[in-house]
């Protein structure tokens, strides 16, 4: 009886790990897509509405929720409160605080850090060019993340279940 319960527990635990890893694989392209959509909206708020940066960042998350919306909202709040910090410093700080919540890899984080360095310091035309360049880069990462998701999601799930079964068989 104990063996049966133990086996079930091992199987459940390994399957959970597998599904968690699969979920992380799905999270990255989703977060990248949301960031791209927010940056597109930010571009409109800067170019057409000429809103101050903190307002534009706060407005760009409309229709988005989850960690990406929290990230932009936190950046907007800090931009409004901490006039002494540059957008780059603020983005870096918020990204550090949200490590593990935002499912982003090093290249995407670097792109977002560089984005902060040029936000608000140039005229509208240059801001637009720069935002489009960042969006383009993130889209490339998103394509890569989608490819990896399709490749790995099923694999991680199967690996979790099969790994659990293998452990159970060996132990029993």
């Amino acid at each position: 009886m104990l063996k049966l319960i133990g086996s079930i527990l091992v199987l459940v635990a390994s399957s959970y790990i597998g599904f968690q890893m699969a979920s992380r694989c799905q999270g990255r392209p989703r977060h990248l897509r949301q960031i791209i959509s927010c940056l597109g909206s930010l571009r409109s708020h800067i170019i057409y509405a000429c809103l101050p940066l903190h307002e534009a960042v706060a407005q760009c998350t409309k229709g988005t929720n989850g960690p990406v919306a929290i990230f932009f909202q936190d950046v907007a709040a800090m931009l409004e409160k901490n006039g002494a910090l540059t957008p780059q410093e603020i983005i870096k700080k918020v990204l550090n605080e949200m490590q593990g919540i935002l499912m982003l890899k090093k290249p995407e984080i670097e792109v977002l850090n560089v984005l902060g360095g040029n936000l608000g310091t140039m005229n509208c035309i240059e801001q637009e060019k720069y935002l489009l360049m960042v969006i383009e880069q993130l889209e490339r990462f998103e394509n890569e993340a989608t490819r990896l998701r399709d490749l790995n999601t099923k694999m991680y799930r199967y690996l979790g279940i099969c790994g659990g079964l293998a452990i159970v068989i060996i132990l029993v």
Partner: peptide, 16 residues
Amino acid sequence: HKTLQFISKNSLYAFE
């Protein structure tokens, strides 16, 4: 630089 940053609230494009 800091004064301009405070005045423009990091949004110089809005004051073109």
